[in-house]
Design a protein around this nucleic acid. Structure first.
Lengths: 222, 222
DNA sequence: ACCTGAACACCGTTCAAGT
DNA sequence: ACCTGAACACCGTTCAAGT
């Protein structure tokens, strides 16, 4: 029972513990309510103590963000269809970003940590197997990541609850249906077709990008 | 000279004045350093006074955001090439979002104010002129907006200074060039081709999306 | 070496009180 | 009706002091 109050012992505060605790807190209560002071309190430690382990809040969040996207590449093994591999890793990335508020912090800039680098490696590897020259591969990689991450950032606020989301879309369509016919005739005519669901929108865009940016799969792998 | 200290007079605080002042402040010093208290101080008014005119900070920012994207549609007249019109409004939207930190707040959700609605109307109108059925038009609209706004949110932090941006890209390429050949062989091989410039990346993606989502221009308008 | 306590300079928001 | 003053419950960060 001596080891019970490990939190208040000296030297027991590590990057790993801080990071893991932060991730759990964000997973449970969302990124908006997270703060450096909050994780310090949860760890039973003075806020200032965290500055022995991280430069500042941004430094901490970048590591938390990378840890959050770790599931994207976990257990990934390349198939013999590079198209498939790219689609798989991007779809997983979107799902993880929508599921964990923590993953969203990766949008504020590259973390340059392991999970992020692994996603890059998998995608460029797939491009290489498709026979793409490095300039084209790099360009395709950037466009696709920009699309997936950008969409995730925009869609995340509504991703929490499915029922909530449907209700919001219905309200937004109603907003368009109430527009004045003089100023917005075409929007009014399209009101009932708007907001077809963010996952459908995402898939349509992804298909378009993949079709244009990647060459066809080599015949022996079809 | 009686009208000189208009700020401290009663009844002179209007939504328009608050909004305009906020926009100017964000334009000058960026969104990060903006606060409700800061605009109150600039107006020579107690922070609490703003709550007579706006529900909360979010309410204020939504109006500021819409005002920031007003230049996108200002003076727009439809050409006889709908493809061209869509490309024009989206390119302008990106430029405005990268140029004014204030425009970025529109990414946190629809403002449902005039400027935003006008962009929608222009885009759906162009789709209609291309002969697209409403379901397809709505889908294309959502995909394109998601792409443009999402990219702008990700690219904005680096959009400020061109020299700064080039230096940052160089540093990021160097990060990749320093990776271990065992863990990241393909990334290492692509190091010098990464980060070909966010505007190039954007254009490549936009071209791919337009080519796939829009039907060809009617022959009599080519 | 690692953590605490107190302080600094901020936030958004509420509500009774003034004019 | 519109604004002020004071208060509440927070922030991130710094730095001297403790152990």
């Amino acid at each position: 029972m001596v080891e019970k109050k490990t939190r208040s012992q000296r030297g027991h505060l590590t990057r790993d513990l801080i990071c893991q605790t932060s991730l759990e807190m964000i997973h449970k209560d969302g990124l908006a309510s997270f703060s450096l002071r909050a994780v310090a309190k949860k760890l039973g430690v003075d806020p200032a103590a965290l500055y022995r382990h991280y430069e500042d809040l941004d430094d901490l969040l970048r590591e938390v963000g990378d840890r959050a996207i770790a599931p994207v590449t976990k257990g990934f093994v390349a198939s013999d269809n590079p198209h498939w591999d790219i689609r798989r890793v991007l779809t997983k990335l979107r799902k993880v970003m929508l599921g964990s508020g923590a993953a969203l912090v990766t949008a504020s800039g590259p973390t340059r940590h392991a999970s992020e680098l692994q996603i890059t490696e998998i995608m460029l590897n797939a491009c290489q197997r498709l026979g793409m020259p490095p300039t084209e591969a790099a360009m395709a990689y950037h466009v696709l990541i920009e699309y997936v991450v950008g969409s995730a950032v925009l869609d995340a606020p509504l991703a929490s609850s499915k029922a909530n989301r449907a209700a919001t879309y219905r309200k937004w369509r109603a907003d368009y249906a109430a527009l004045s016919p003089e100023d917005y005739p075409v929007s009014l005519a399209h009101a009932s077709y708007l907001y077809p669901g963010s996952d459908n929108v995402f898939q349509t865009g992804l298909d378009a990008l993949l079709a244009h940016l990647l060459p066809p799969v080599p015949v022996d792998h079809q």
